[in-house]
């Protein structure tokens, strides 16, 4: 019972911080400390958002399609690679450094190349999303497979289980927790990856909208689209958490018990 109050406060804390930031923002713009073309007021940003709402939704659907397809392909690729790397240690040794290197290449440098190779359609955007999302998932799956309890693996072997059954009953389910941790990171990268790819060439998508309003110096629209993208990423992350709760009911029950 005594723990209830602090838990409410701790839940409200981030909301409070957010409100404070918006209030300060409103106060600064309201008092005209900063010229409105440099920092539009929250009200202007909201107006810009609802004024352009249909256009934003259209661009968002394009970006989300790219992000989803890219994330899906990225996860599939990660699953395939991680599983093969776990099965064949030589592949692990051969590929792991390469995986890390792909992550050190700045996205912004790859995107124009992809546009050059694949044109202005969806393909380069999806590819970029795949490149940014597969790594966190692959690494977390690999860690997850390795976190499987060796005693449990021995026990299954003693029951006569082969590799496939050990994977199915021990390794894969043991990796789910860390898989979802990786997927959460990847989901938040997916939208940003798609937006960056759109900056560098294309006709549709939130990234295209962003470059357009930027060139028009429409900072209110710029702010509204940035906040919109943030919200979409957050929603995606929450979505991943929701799926995790559905797929891993035993975790949920454990949490209920702790309460």
């Amino acid at each position: 019972m005594t723990k209830k109050l602090p838990s409410i406060i701790s839940k409200l804390a981030p909301v409070g911080t957010l409100l404070t930031v918006v209030l300060i923002w409103a106060a600064v713009t309201g008092a005209s400390l900063v010229p409105s073309f440099m920092l539009p007021s929250p009200r202007d940003v909201a107006k810009a958002f609802f004024g352009d709402f249909p256009i934003l939704m259209h661009h968002a659907s394009v970006t989300l399609t790219e992000a989803f397809l890219g994330l899906l392909l990225g996860v599939l690729l990660a699953f395939l690679l991680a599983t093969l790397m776990d099965r064949f240690p030589i592949l692990y040794k051969a590929l792991y450094p390469l995986l890390v290197i792909t992550q050190t290449i700045p996205t912004i440098a790859v995107a124009p190349l992809l546009v050059l190779w694949m044109g202005f359609g969806m393909a380069p955007k999806i590819t970029l999303v795949v490149l940014t999302t597969f790594f966190p998932v692959a690494v977390s799956l690999l860690d997850g497979y390795r976190s499987a309890d060796p005693d449990a693996i021995h026990l299954l072997r003693s029951m006569g289980a082969g590799r496939v059954k050990i994977f199915r009953y021990i390794k894969f389910p043991s990796s789910l927790g860390s898989f979802f941790a990786g997927l959460k990171v990847s989901a938040s990268y997916a939208v940003v990856g798609a937006v960056i790819a759109e900056w560098l060439g294309g006709f549709e998508g939130l990234g295209v909208y962003m470059t357009r309003v930027q060139k028009a110096y429409a900072f209110d629209k710029m702010f509204s689209v940035v906040i919109f993208i943030t919200l979409i990423s957050l929603l995606l992350m929450w979505g991943v958490m929701g799926i995790k709760m559905l797929v891993m009911p035993w975790e949920r029950k454990e949490k209920e018990k702790k309460k």
Partner: peptide, 14 residues
């Protein structure tokens, strides 16, 4: 393997 099973102090329930 597969004929005789064992049980440890650690129950190893998944």
């Amino acid at each position: 393997p597969g004929k005789i099973s064992y049980m440890l102090q650690k129950d190893l329930l998944l």
